[in-house]
Write a protein that binds this DNA or RNA. Structure first.
Lengths: 253, 253
DNA sequence: CCCTCCGCTATTGTATACATAACGTATTCA
DNA sequence: TGAATACGTTATGTATACAATAGCGGAGGG
């Protein structure tokens, strides 16, 4: 592999992965706007990888749902409607409901629930401060994602876990842009607290092997997130410039 | 593009697509066994495309869930347990339930239901003969897939449709191998008839805008398919050599 | 002045060459 | 005789060259 004279090659990770991460960041940060065509040549320059890994990254991102193939060739950044996004949230909730049911029906040891409960306690701690700070909200988002990931794992169903990961691409994609915290909605924290109550109930249901209840609560949880999204969208003013995705991480409970 | 002297190049479809289809066929037909490492060089020879399109096809098939990346490099054919498959069926049913609910809640015109009802009638016609012939069963599988696809479309939710397509990759992947028809189970046709009844009910529920009922029936439909799969797996004898996927199209209702 | 057609350019699709890492084998030393 | 190391072969990751097509702009005719 002959390194180009002027180009620094980072050998620690594969070029393909590097390109994929870089491009995803560009999409989610809004550097590439929805609907915009993505140029391979340009991607080569911004990512530092050559065309082959860039193309592989583009294919992966297309399968991931962030890009859309253009019939005449190439890719464009996919655009999402508000309904697309709320549907995605409900979809994810439905899948997580199934995961919770599987977990309840198949049984989970106390040891496996341990990290979930730790997550719960940490979130409790964060939500105690009213109103919540931006930093705390940021931690909340991380912990919440962790909770959901752990819950998904409990299903012990690789196909389901895989599918939930894919379904989460939209709702959880954004690396930053904690819109809700910025807009400082008064209802926001109340919604977070209700969501946390859901978390508590689902763990209880799984412990008691009540599959139907576990499933129902996760679906309710998703409906809450949809309401939350609607709320955030109603109150957006200065946010119109952000790509739709940037809203999601904040709104998806 | 200089065609290699001895290699016939088919320009009607892109090499990438051609390679993807060829490789998928190889996987699903069992030419490549689960767990087997897939060699790029070999794939180049069997598909007739060069390495770049082959690699893109491999990445796509990995994202599709048929291949698994090997940490040290390359890909292998993914292996599925029986539980993986039954979980996939239930997963798909859950998603289709959501689609049916969306369709019911969002309203569907009589015109849109037309093709569904035609499908229904055609399947009725096929199921009238007892026992069903292999040819008729083959037609049934096609019509059934069409019905499910049309139903999915009714949700008018691109993210959900996309997700269902992906979830169907496993259950509906196999291009042939109508196992159930061959094994000629006595219960088989009865299950088909019950499934057809489900189809009828879900259309009725959507017409009457009963979202909850539409959703429930599709989930029941999936549970029936899982029972059907179990039945088929119990009765397999000469089928052990087939890849797990080959069973699915037949068993998934 | 507008519409159409031709040609050019830019970008993607494909092929292949090159580098590197991993695996297997053989040989040598303990 | 067994194990470890070194070397060679093979296959993957990466880069780049080449071919073809689509889109765009200019020029010419109506």
């Amino acid at each position: 592999m002959k390194a180009a004279p002027e180009r620094e090659v980072d050998r620690s990770v594969s070029q393909t992965v590097k390109a994929q991460l870089a491009l995803r960041d560009q999409i989610l940060s809004g550097s590439l706007r929805p609907g915009e065509r993505i140029s391979e040549l340009q991607a080569v320059e911004t990512t530092g990888a050559s065309r082959t890994p860039v193309r592989m990254a583009l294919v992966r991102l297309e399968e991931e749902g962030l890009l859309e193939a253009i019939p005449s060739g190439g890719f464009m950044v996919k655009a999402f409607s508000e309904r697309d996004i709320s549907d995605s949230i409900e979809l994810r909730g439905t899948l997580e409901g199934l995961a919770a049911r599987f977990a309840a029906e198949r049984g989970v040891s106390a040891r496996e629930l341990e990290p979930l409960k730790e997550c719960l306690a940490a979130i409790d701690e964060l939500l105690r401060q009213v109103p919540i700070s931006v930093d705390a909200f940021s931690s909340y988002v991380t912990l919440n994602a962790r909770f959901h990931a752990l819950l998904t794992e409990l299903s012990r169903s690789p196909p389901l876990i895989r599918q939930i990961d894919r379904a989460s691409a939209l709702p959880f994609a954004s690396p930053s842009g904690f819109v809700m915290a910025q807009s400082a909605l008064p209802e926001a924290q109340q919604i977070l607290i209700i969501g946390q109550e859901h978390h508590r109930v689902v763990i209880d249901a799984i412990e008691n092997r009540e599959g139907a209840r576990a499933e129902a609560i996760m679906r309710e949880h998703a409906r809450l997130a949809v309401r939350n999204l609607r709320l955030a969208l109603r109150n957006r003013t200065h946010l119109d410039l952000l790509p739709a995705l940037a809203l999601i991480k904040a709104a998806t409970d």
